[in-house]
Design a protein around this nucleic acid. Structure first.
Lengths: 239, 239
DNA sequence: AACACCGGCTATGTATACAGAATATGGATG
DNA sequence: CATCCATATTCTGTATACATAGCCGGTGTT
Protein backbone atom coordinates (compact mmCIF):
# COMPACT_ATOMS: atom_id res chain seq x y z
CA UNK A 1 0.00 0.00 0.00
CA UNK A 2 1.50 3.24 -1.07
CA UNK A 3 -0.82 5.39 0.97
CA UNK A 4 -0.64 6.24 4.61
CA UNK A 5 1.49 3.66 6.22
CA UNK A 6 1.91 6.00 9.11
CA UNK A 7 -0.73 5.81 11.78
CA UNK A 8 -0.63 9.57 12.27
CA UNK A 9 -1.57 10.08 8.63
CA UNK A 10 -4.44 7.68 8.88
CA UNK A 11 -5.69 9.37 12.01
CA UNK A 12 -5.37 12.79 10.40
CA UNK A 13 -7.21 11.84 7.24
CA UNK A 14 -9.92 10.00 9.12
CA UNK A 15 -10.56 12.86 11.50
CA UNK A 16 -10.39 15.43 8.73
CA UNK A 17 -12.88 13.52 6.63
CA UNK A 18 -15.21 13.08 9.56
CA UNK A 19 -15.10 16.77 10.38
CA UNK A 20 -15.57 17.79 6.77
CA UNK A 21 -18.44 15.36 6.30
CA UNK A 22 -20.17 16.64 9.42
CA UNK A 23 -19.89 13.30 11.16
CA UNK A 24 -17.96 15.19 13.80
CA UNK A 25 -20.08 18.26 14.32
CA UNK A 26 -18.81 21.70 15.36
CA UNK A 27 -18.34 21.83 19.08
CA UNK A 28 -17.49 18.17 19.41
CA UNK A 29 -14.76 17.68 21.98
CA UNK A 30 -11.89 15.54 20.77
CA UNK A 31 -10.33 13.91 23.80
CA UNK A 32 -7.01 12.30 23.15
CA UNK A 33 -7.63 8.99 24.83
CA UNK A 34 -11.14 8.74 23.47
CA UNK A 35 -10.10 9.32 19.86
CA UNK A 36 -6.97 7.23 20.07
CA UNK A 37 -8.90 4.21 21.26
CA UNK A 38 -11.62 4.82 18.70
CA UNK A 39 -9.20 5.07 15.79
CA UNK A 40 -7.02 2.27 17.05
CA UNK A 41 -3.82 4.28 17.31
CA UNK A 42 -1.90 5.40 20.33
CA UNK A 43 -1.93 8.90 21.68
CA UNK A 44 1.34 10.00 20.09
CA UNK A 45 0.32 9.81 16.42
CA UNK A 46 -3.13 11.05 17.34
CA UNK A 47 -1.64 14.16 18.88
CA UNK A 48 0.26 14.76 15.67
CA UNK A 49 -2.99 14.47 13.73
CA UNK A 50 -4.66 16.96 16.07
CA UNK A 51 -1.75 19.36 15.68
CA UNK A 52 -2.20 19.28 11.93
CA UNK A 53 -5.93 19.78 12.26
CA UNK A 54 -5.29 22.79 14.44
CA UNK A 55 -2.98 24.22 11.80
CA UNK A 56 -5.77 23.68 9.26
CA UNK A 57 -8.18 25.56 11.47
CA UNK A 58 -10.55 22.61 11.70
CA UNK A 59 -10.14 22.24 15.44
CA UNK A 60 -9.12 24.75 18.07
CA UNK A 61 -8.21 24.55 21.72
CA UNK A 62 -11.20 25.75 23.64
CA UNK A 63 -9.68 27.87 26.42
CA UNK A 64 -7.26 25.20 27.43
CA UNK A 65 -9.92 22.64 27.97
CA UNK A 66 -9.83 20.11 25.24
CA UNK A 67 -9.78 20.45 21.50
CA UNK A 68 -13.10 21.09 19.83
CA UNK A 69 -14.19 21.05 16.21
CA UNK A 70 -14.37 24.65 15.10
CA UNK A 71 -17.67 26.28 14.51
CA UNK A 72 -18.88 27.13 11.02
CA UNK A 73 -21.32 29.97 11.39
CA UNK A 74 -22.71 32.05 8.57
CA UNK A 75 -20.29 34.77 9.66
CA UNK A 76 -17.30 32.47 9.30
CA UNK A 77 -18.54 31.34 5.90
CA UNK A 78 -18.51 34.97 4.86
CA UNK A 79 -14.95 35.22 6.17
CA UNK A 80 -13.92 32.17 4.20
CA UNK A 81 -15.37 33.67 1.06
CA UNK A 82 -13.50 36.92 1.59
CA UNK A 83 -10.25 34.98 1.54
CA UNK A 84 -11.49 32.88 -1.32
CA UNK A 85 -12.28 35.94 -3.40
CA UNK A 86 -8.75 37.18 -2.97
CA UNK A 87 -6.99 33.89 -3.66
CA UNK A 88 -9.14 32.51 -6.44
CA UNK A 89 -9.20 35.78 -8.32
CA UNK A 90 -5.43 35.84 -8.24
CA UNK A 91 -5.27 32.16 -9.20
CA UNK A 92 -7.59 32.67 -12.16
CA UNK A 93 -5.65 35.70 -13.31
CA UNK A 94 -2.32 33.92 -13.18
CA UNK A 95 -3.70 30.77 -14.74
CA UNK A 96 -4.96 32.80 -17.68
CA UNK A 97 -1.49 34.22 -18.17
CA UNK A 98 0.47 31.02 -17.76
CA UNK A 99 -1.84 28.12 -18.41
CA UNK A 100 -1.75 25.64 -21.20
CA UNK A 101 -4.66 26.72 -23.38
CA UNK A 102 -5.29 23.20 -24.62
CA UNK A 103 -5.98 21.94 -21.11
CA UNK A 104 -8.59 24.60 -20.50
CA UNK A 105 -10.13 24.18 -23.92
CA UNK A 106 -10.73 20.55 -23.03
CA UNK A 107 -12.27 21.61 -19.73
CA UNK A 108 -14.36 24.13 -21.62
CA UNK A 109 -15.88 21.33 -23.66
CA UNK A 110 -16.66 19.35 -20.56
CA UNK A 111 -18.21 22.26 -18.71
CA UNK A 112 -20.32 23.07 -21.75
CA UNK A 113 -21.73 19.55 -21.55
CA UNK A 114 -22.17 19.58 -17.79
CA UNK A 115 -25.94 19.51 -17.93
CA UNK A 116 -25.74 15.92 -19.05
CA UNK A 117 -23.67 15.15 -15.99
CA UNK A 118 -26.25 16.74 -13.75
CA UNK A 119 -29.08 14.75 -15.27
CA UNK A 120 -27.50 11.47 -14.43
CA UNK A 121 -28.72 9.88 -11.28
CA UNK A 122 -25.92 10.98 -9.01
CA UNK A 123 -27.21 12.22 -5.68
CA UNK A 124 -23.77 13.18 -4.43
CA UNK A 125 -22.95 14.88 -7.76
CA UNK A 126 -19.66 13.04 -7.84
CA UNK A 127 -19.19 13.57 -11.54
CA UNK A 128 -19.86 17.28 -11.30
CA UNK A 129 -17.66 17.90 -8.30
CA UNK A 130 -15.00 15.74 -9.85
CA UNK A 131 -14.98 18.05 -12.83
CA UNK A 132 -14.74 21.08 -10.58
CA UNK A 133 -11.86 19.44 -8.75
CA UNK A 134 -10.10 18.87 -12.05
CA UNK A 135 -10.56 22.53 -12.87
CA UNK A 136 -9.02 23.43 -9.53
CA UNK A 137 -6.11 21.12 -10.22
CA UNK A 138 -5.65 22.57 -13.69
CA UNK A 139 -5.59 26.08 -12.27
CA UNK A 140 -3.10 25.11 -9.57
CA UNK A 141 -0.86 23.49 -12.14
CA UNK A 142 -1.13 26.42 -14.49
CA UNK A 143 -0.31 28.93 -11.77
CA UNK A 144 2.67 26.98 -10.53
CA UNK A 145 2.76 28.66 -7.16
CA UNK A 146 3.14 26.30 -4.23
CA UNK A 147 2.29 28.93 -1.63
CA UNK A 148 -0.92 29.86 -3.42
CA UNK A 149 -1.72 26.19 -3.93
CA UNK A 150 -1.22 25.47 -0.24
CA UNK A 151 -3.41 28.37 0.82
CA UNK A 152 -6.11 27.29 -1.60
CA UNK A 153 -5.86 23.69 -0.43
CA UNK A 154 -6.64 24.50 3.19
CA UNK A 155 -9.35 26.86 2.06
CA UNK A 156 -10.96 24.17 -0.07
CA UNK A 157 -11.02 21.86 2.91
CA UNK A 158 -13.21 24.36 4.69
CA UNK A 159 -15.29 24.81 1.58
CA UNK A 160 -16.15 21.13 1.42
CA UNK A 161 -17.59 21.62 4.88
CA UNK A 162 -19.65 24.52 3.58
CA UNK A 163 -20.76 22.51 0.57
CA UNK A 164 -22.58 20.08 2.80
CA UNK A 165 -24.94 22.90 3.65
CA UNK A 166 -25.61 24.53 0.34
CA UNK A 167 -25.90 21.78 -2.23
CA UNK A 168 -28.97 19.97 -3.48
CA UNK A 169 -30.20 22.92 -5.47
CA UNK A 170 -30.19 21.82 -9.13
CA UNK A 171 -30.88 25.30 -10.42
CA UNK A 172 -27.90 26.68 -8.55
CA UNK A 173 -25.65 23.88 -9.74
CA UNK A 174 -26.59 24.57 -13.32
CA UNK A 175 -25.95 28.27 -12.88
CA UNK A 176 -22.65 27.55 -11.17
CA UNK A 177 -21.63 25.39 -14.10
CA UNK A 178 -22.38 28.25 -16.46
CA UNK A 179 -20.22 30.55 -14.33
CA UNK A 180 -17.44 28.00 -14.36
CA UNK A 181 -17.74 27.84 -18.11
CA UNK A 182 -17.12 31.57 -18.31
CA UNK A 183 -14.06 31.26 -16.14
CA UNK A 184 -12.62 28.40 -18.15
CA UNK A 185 -13.28 30.21 -21.41
CA UNK A 186 -11.52 33.30 -20.16
CA UNK A 187 -8.50 31.29 -19.07
CA UNK A 188 -8.40 29.37 -22.33
CA UNK A 189 -8.58 32.68 -24.17
CA UNK A 190 -5.72 34.00 -22.01
CA UNK A 191 -7.87 36.90 -20.85
CA UNK A 192 -6.59 37.38 -17.32
CA UNK A 193 -8.85 40.23 -16.30
CA UNK A 194 -11.95 38.53 -17.62
CA UNK A 195 -10.99 35.38 -15.75
CA UNK A 196 -10.58 37.41 -12.57
CA UNK A 197 -13.91 39.14 -13.01
CA UNK A 198 -15.72 35.93 -13.89
CA UNK A 199 -14.30 34.38 -10.74
CA UNK A 200 -15.57 37.27 -8.69
CA UNK A 201 -19.00 36.87 -10.21
CA UNK A 202 -19.04 33.17 -9.49
CA UNK A 203 -17.98 33.58 -5.87
CA UNK A 204 -20.46 36.38 -5.33
CA UNK A 205 -23.28 34.21 -6.62
CA UNK A 206 -22.12 31.20 -4.64
CA UNK A 207 -22.07 33.17 -1.40
CA UNK A 208 -25.42 34.76 -2.20
CA UNK A 209 -26.92 31.35 -2.72
CA UNK A 210 -25.64 30.14 0.62
CA UNK A 211 -26.97 33.20 2.36
CA UNK A 212 -30.31 32.79 0.65
CA UNK A 213 -30.59 29.24 1.84
CA UNK A 214 -29.59 30.29 5.31
CA UNK A 215 -32.35 32.86 5.34
CA UNK A 216 -34.93 30.36 4.20
CA UNK A 217 -34.19 28.24 7.18
CA UNK A 218 -34.87 29.70 10.57
CA UNK A 219 -31.23 30.10 11.27
CA UNK A 220 -28.46 28.01 9.88
CA UNK A 221 -27.55 26.26 13.06
CA UNK A 222 -30.92 24.63 13.55
CA UNK A 223 -30.68 23.02 10.18
CA UNK A 224 -27.21 21.69 10.74
CA UNK A 225 -28.46 19.58 13.57
CA UNK A 226 -30.96 17.83 11.37
CA UNK A 227 -28.89 17.54 8.27
CA UNK A 228 -25.86 16.15 9.98
CA UNK A 229 -27.75 13.71 12.14
CA UNK A 230 -28.70 11.43 9.29
CA UNK A 231 -25.32 10.54 7.84
CA UNK A 232 -25.19 8.53 4.68
CA UNK A 233 -28.36 6.67 3.91
CA UNK A 234 -31.93 7.56 3.16
CA UNK A 235 -33.60 10.87 2.65
CA UNK A 236 -33.66 13.31 5.52
CA UNK A 237 -37.01 13.14 7.17
CA UNK A 238 -38.99 16.26 6.54
CA UNK A 239 -39.33 18.63 9.40
CA UNK B 1 0.89 36.29 30.63
CA UNK B 2 0.65 32.65 29.88
CA UNK B 3 3.53 32.49 27.45
CA UNK B 4 4.81 29.19 26.23
CA UNK B 5 4.77 27.03 29.23
CA UNK B 6 4.72 24.05 26.99
CA UNK B 7 8.03 22.71 25.84
CA UNK B 8 6.61 22.08 22.37
CA UNK B 9 5.77 25.77 22.06
CA UNK B 10 9.23 26.79 23.12
CA UNK B 11 10.77 24.38 20.66
CA UNK B 12 8.49 25.63 17.91
CA UNK B 13 9.20 29.28 18.52
CA UNK B 14 12.91 28.72 18.88
CA UNK B 15 13.18 26.74 15.68
CA UNK B 16 10.90 29.13 13.83
CA UNK B 17 12.96 32.10 14.94
CA UNK B 18 16.18 30.40 14.00
CA UNK B 19 14.88 29.54 10.56
CA UNK B 20 13.47 33.01 10.02
CA UNK B 21 16.66 34.65 11.22
CA UNK B 22 18.74 32.51 8.90
CA UNK B 23 20.55 30.87 11.78
CA UNK B 24 19.20 27.63 10.38
CA UNK B 25 19.85 27.96 6.68
CA UNK B 26 17.80 26.42 3.88
CA UNK B 27 18.82 22.84 3.37
CA UNK B 28 19.75 22.27 7.00
CA UNK B 29 18.69 18.83 8.11
CA UNK B 30 16.74 18.80 11.34
CA UNK B 31 17.27 15.44 12.99
CA UNK B 32 14.94 14.72 15.84
CA UNK B 33 17.44 13.51 18.38
CA UNK B 34 19.95 16.18 17.43
CA UNK B 35 17.49 19.05 17.84
CA UNK B 36 15.80 17.64 20.91
CA UNK B 37 19.09 17.41 22.77
CA UNK B 38 20.13 20.82 21.55
CA UNK B 39 16.91 22.48 22.68
CA UNK B 40 16.71 20.52 25.88
CA UNK B 41 13.33 18.94 25.24
CA UNK B 42 12.42 15.39 24.51
CA UNK B 43 11.55 14.09 21.11
CA UNK B 44 7.80 14.17 21.59
CA UNK B 45 7.32 17.94 21.90
CA UNK B 46 10.01 18.48 19.31
CA UNK B 47 8.10 16.36 16.82
CA UNK B 48 5.05 18.49 17.46
CA UNK B 49 7.11 21.58 16.76
CA UNK B 50 8.37 20.07 13.52
CA UNK B 51 4.84 19.18 12.50
CA UNK B 52 3.79 22.77 12.95
CA UNK B 53 6.80 23.99 11.02
CA UNK B 54 5.87 21.68 8.19
CA UNK B 55 2.36 23.09 8.17
CA UNK B 56 3.90 26.55 7.99
CA UNK B 57 5.97 25.51 5.02
CA UNK B 58 9.22 26.34 6.76
CA UNK B 59 10.47 22.77 6.68
CA UNK B 60 9.60 19.90 4.40
CA UNK B 61 10.33 16.23 4.37
CA UNK B 62 13.01 15.70 1.78
CA UNK B 63 11.98 12.55 -0.03
CA UNK B 64 10.81 10.97 3.17
CA UNK B 65 14.25 10.97 4.65
CA UNK B 66 14.80 13.69 7.16
CA UNK B 67 13.26 17.13 7.52
CA UNK B 68 15.07 20.02 5.92
CA UNK B 69 14.60 23.76 6.10
CA UNK B 70 12.83 24.80 2.92
CA UNK B 71 14.64 26.70 0.26
CA UNK B 72 13.92 30.36 -0.42
CA UNK B 73 14.87 31.08 -3.98
CA UNK B 74 14.06 34.21 -5.90
CA UNK B 75 11.35 32.22 -7.64
CA UNK B 76 9.71 31.30 -4.36
CA UNK B 77 9.90 34.92 -3.22
CA UNK B 78 7.97 35.84 -6.32
CA UNK B 79 5.42 33.18 -5.44
CA UNK B 80 5.10 34.54 -1.92
CA UNK B 81 4.48 38.00 -3.30
CA UNK B 82 1.78 36.74 -5.63
CA UNK B 83 -0.12 35.42 -2.63
CA UNK B 84 0.70 38.54 -0.69
CA UNK B 85 -0.71 40.77 -3.41
CA UNK B 86 -3.98 38.91 -3.27
CA UNK B 87 -4.32 38.79 0.50
CA UNK B 88 -3.02 42.22 1.44
CA UNK B 89 -5.05 43.95 -1.23
CA UNK B 90 -8.16 42.31 0.15
CA UNK B 91 -7.13 43.11 3.71
CA UNK B 92 -6.54 46.77 2.90
CA UNK B 93 -9.84 47.01 1.09
CA UNK B 94 -11.81 45.49 3.94
CA UNK B 95 -9.93 47.47 6.56
CA UNK B 96 -10.85 50.67 4.75
CA UNK B 97 -14.50 49.67 4.87
CA UNK B 98 -14.64 48.47 8.44
CA UNK B 99 -11.74 50.01 10.32
CA UNK B 100 -11.85 52.52 13.12
CA UNK B 101 -10.71 55.71 11.40
CA UNK B 102 -9.19 57.08 14.58
CA UNK B 103 -6.77 54.19 14.84
CA UNK B 104 -5.49 54.72 11.33
CA UNK B 105 -5.34 58.49 11.73
CA UNK B 106 -2.99 57.91 14.65
CA UNK B 107 -0.92 55.54 12.53
CA UNK B 108 -0.96 58.16 9.78
CA UNK B 109 0.70 60.62 12.12
CA UNK B 110 3.35 58.12 13.06
CA UNK B 111 4.10 57.11 9.50
CA UNK B 112 4.37 60.75 8.51
CA UNK B 113 7.09 61.13 11.14
CA UNK B 114 8.85 57.92 10.29
CA UNK B 115 11.97 59.59 8.96
CA UNK B 116 12.87 60.50 12.51
CA UNK B 117 12.64 56.85 13.42
CA UNK B 118 14.96 55.90 10.61
CA UNK B 119 17.55 58.45 11.63
CA UNK B 120 17.96 56.98 15.06
CA UNK B 121 20.80 54.61 15.44
CA UNK B 122 18.89 51.41 15.09
CA UNK B 123 20.67 48.95 12.87
CA UNK B 124 17.88 46.39 13.09
CA UNK B 125 15.24 49.08 12.46
CA UNK B 126 13.28 47.78 15.38
CA UNK B 127 11.29 50.96 15.76
CA UNK B 128 10.36 51.05 12.10
CA UNK B 129 9.43 47.42 11.80
CA UNK B 130 7.54 47.70 15.06
CA UNK B 131 5.44 50.41 13.51
CA UNK B 132 4.82 48.28 10.44
CA UNK B 133 3.82 45.40 12.70
CA UNK B 134 1.36 47.66 14.47
CA UNK B 135 -0.11 48.60 11.13
CA UNK B 136 -0.49 44.94 10.29
CA UNK B 137 -2.20 44.35 13.61
CA UNK B 138 -4.49 47.30 13.08
CA UNK B 139 -5.48 46.01 9.67
CA UNK B 140 -6.10 42.52 11.01
CA UNK B 141 -8.25 43.91 13.79
CA UNK B 142 -10.15 46.16 11.44
CA UNK B 143 -10.84 43.37 8.99
CA UNK B 144 -12.04 41.01 11.68
CA UNK B 145 -11.51 37.90 9.57
CA UNK B 146 -9.73 35.09 11.34
CA UNK B 147 -9.13 33.07 8.18
CA UNK B 148 -7.55 36.03 6.44
CA UNK B 149 -5.55 36.83 9.55
CA UNK B 150 -4.27 33.28 9.75
CA UNK B 151 -3.26 33.23 6.10
CA UNK B 152 -1.50 36.55 6.47
CA UNK B 153 0.25 35.39 9.62
CA UNK B 154 1.93 32.43 7.96
CA UNK B 155 2.75 34.59 4.98
CA UNK B 156 4.39 37.20 7.18
CA UNK B 157 6.55 34.53 8.73
CA UNK B 158 7.98 33.81 5.32
CA UNK B 159 8.32 37.51 4.65
CA UNK B 160 10.51 38.03 7.69
CA UNK B 161 12.80 35.47 6.13
CA UNK B 162 12.80 37.50 2.92
CA UNK B 163 13.40 40.71 4.83
CA UNK B 164 16.76 39.42 5.96
CA UNK B 165 17.87 39.61 2.37
CA UNK B 166 16.49 42.90 1.23
CA UNK B 167 16.92 45.34 4.08
CA UNK B 168 19.75 47.73 4.76
CA UNK B 169 18.74 50.09 2.00
CA UNK B 170 17.81 53.41 3.65
CA UNK B 171 16.43 54.89 0.47
CA UNK B 172 14.11 51.94 -0.01
CA UNK B 173 12.97 52.06 3.62
CA UNK B 174 12.10 55.72 3.27
CA UNK B 175 10.19 55.06 0.08
CA UNK B 176 8.41 52.13 1.68
CA UNK B 177 7.37 54.35 4.55
CA UNK B 178 5.90 56.82 2.08
CA UNK B 179 3.97 54.00 0.44
CA UNK B 180 2.72 52.85 3.80
CA UNK B 181 1.61 56.38 4.52
CA UNK B 182 -0.53 56.34 1.40
CA UNK B 183 -2.12 53.07 2.44
CA UNK B 184 -2.86 54.29 5.95
CA UNK B 185 -4.30 57.53 4.64
CA UNK B 186 -6.57 55.68 2.27
CA UNK B 187 -7.82 53.41 5.05
CA UNK B 188 -8.35 56.32 7.41
CA UNK B 189 -10.29 58.08 4.66
CA UNK B 190 -12.37 54.93 4.15
CA UNK B 191 -11.37 54.78 0.51
CA UNK B 192 -11.31 51.04 -0.08
CA UNK B 193 -10.23 51.06 -3.70
CA UNK B 194 -7.47 53.55 -3.11
CA UNK B 195 -6.23 51.45 -0.21
CA UNK B 196 -6.22 48.40 -2.46
CA UNK B 197 -4.34 50.20 -5.22
CA UNK B 198 -1.84 51.74 -2.83
CA UNK B 199 -1.17 48.29 -1.44
CA UNK B 200 -0.56 46.94 -4.93
CA UNK B 201 1.86 49.77 -5.57
CA UNK B 202 3.72 49.11 -2.37
CA UNK B 203 4.04 45.39 -2.99
CA UNK B 204 5.11 45.95 -6.56
CA UNK B 205 7.86 48.28 -5.44
CA UNK B 206 8.92 45.99 -2.62
CA UNK B 207 9.29 43.04 -4.96
CA UNK B 208 11.07 45.16 -7.53
CA UNK B 209 13.53 46.25 -4.91
CA UNK B 210 14.24 42.69 -3.92
CA UNK B 211 14.72 41.67 -7.53
CA UNK B 212 16.99 44.62 -8.13
CA UNK B 213 19.19 43.64 -5.22
CA UNK B 214 19.21 40.06 -6.41
CA UNK B 215 20.42 41.20 -9.80
CA UNK B 216 23.17 43.30 -8.30
CA UNK B 217 24.57 40.27 -6.62
CA UNK B 218 25.78 37.49 -8.85
CA UNK B 219 22.87 35.35 -7.97
CA UNK B 220 20.95 35.40 -4.76
CA UNK B 221 22.17 32.12 -3.43
CA UNK B 222 25.80 33.13 -3.33
CA UNK B 223 24.93 36.10 -1.22
CA UNK B 224 22.88 34.14 1.24
CA UNK B 225 25.87 32.15 2.24
CA UNK B 226 27.76 35.23 3.28
CA UNK B 227 24.96 37.26 4.75
CA UNK B 228 23.54 34.50 6.84
CA UNK B 229 26.82 33.02 7.94
CA UNK B 230 26.32 31.93 11.47
CA UNK B 231 28.76 29.12 11.57
CA UNK B 232 27.93 27.73 14.98
CA UNK B 233 25.15 25.33 14.13
CA UNK B 234 23.83 23.14 11.43
CA UNK B 235 25.84 23.52 8.35
CA UNK B 236 24.11 21.88 5.42
CA UNK B 237 24.83 18.25 5.42
CA UNK B 238 26.75 16.62 2.65
CA UNK B 239 30.39 16.17 1.86
C1' DA C 1 37.60 -5.28 -10.26
C1' DA C 2 32.80 -4.81 -9.93
C1' DC C 3 28.53 -6.10 -8.26
C1' DA C 4 25.53 -8.13 -5.04
C1' DC C 5 24.26 -9.57 -0.64
C1' DC C 6 24.41 -9.35 4.28
C1' DG C 7 24.89 -7.33 8.78
C1' DG C 8 24.90 -3.56 11.71
C1' DC C 9 23.54 1.01 12.75
C1' DT C 10 21.06 5.06 12.95
C1' DA C 11 16.96 7.27 12.29
C1' DT C 12 12.06 7.64 12.55
C1' DG C 13 7.50 6.05 14.08
C1' DT C 14 4.79 4.25 17.84
C1' DA C 15 3.46 2.87 22.38
C1' DT C 16 3.33 3.39 27.15
C1' DA C 17 4.47 5.08 31.59
C1' DC C 18 4.84 9.02 34.58
C1' DA C 19 4.01 13.74 36.36
C1' DG C 20 1.51 17.82 36.98
C1' DA C 21 -2.50 20.57 36.57
C1' DA C 22 -7.28 21.47 36.37
C1' DT C 23 -11.88 20.37 37.38
C1' DA C 24 -15.58 18.22 39.41
C1' DT C 25 -17.48 16.40 43.41
C1' DG C 26 -18.55 15.51 47.98
C1' DG C 27 -18.47 16.48 52.65
C1' DA C 28 -18.27 19.57 56.29
C1' DT C 29 -19.21 23.86 58.29
C1' DG C 30 -21.22 28.42 58.77
C1' DC D 1 -29.27 25.45 52.52
C1' DA D 2 -25.37 27.42 50.54
C1' DT D 3 -20.57 27.85 50.24
C1' DC D 4 -15.93 26.63 50.65
C1' DC D 5 -12.27 23.55 50.91
C1' DA D 6 -10.21 19.20 50.28
C1' DT D 7 -9.70 15.25 47.65
C1' DA D 8 -10.00 12.29 43.87
C1' DT D 9 -10.23 11.62 39.14
C1' DT D 10 -9.11 12.54 34.63
C1' DC D 11 -7.04 15.05 31.52
C1' DT D 12 -3.00 16.88 28.96
C1' DG D 13 2.01 17.26 28.47
C1' DT D 14 6.43 15.01 28.60
C1' DA D 15 9.79 11.45 28.70
C1' DT D 16 11.51 7.13 27.54
C1' DA D 17 11.52 2.56 25.84
C1' DC D 18 10.74 -0.37 21.86
C1' DA D 19 10.16 -1.80 17.03
C1' DT D 20 11.03 -1.25 12.36
C1' DA D 21 12.77 0.38 8.19
C1' DG D 22 16.16 2.43 5.28
C1' DC D 23 21.21 3.42 4.53
C1' DC D 24 26.16 2.41 4.78
C1' DG D 25 29.95 -0.38 5.01
C1' DG D 26 32.06 -4.73 4.41
C1' DT D 27 32.85 -8.96 2.37
C1' DG D 28 32.35 -12.57 -0.76
C1' DT D 29 31.65 -14.14 -5.32
C1' DT D 30 31.75 -13.87 -10.26
Amino acid sequence: MAVSQRASDRAYQTLRDEIVQWELRPGSVLGEVEQSTRLGVSRTPLREALTRLMADGLVSSQSGRGLVVTDLSLASIREIFEVRQALEEQAARLAARRGDAAVFQQLEIEFAAVNELLEHDDPARHAYYGLVARLDDAIDTAVGNSYLAAALATLRTHLVRVRRLAVDDPARLSAAAAEHLLIVRAIAARDAELAAHATQVHLHQALRNIQKMANLQTGLQADLLHRASSPSTAAPKGT
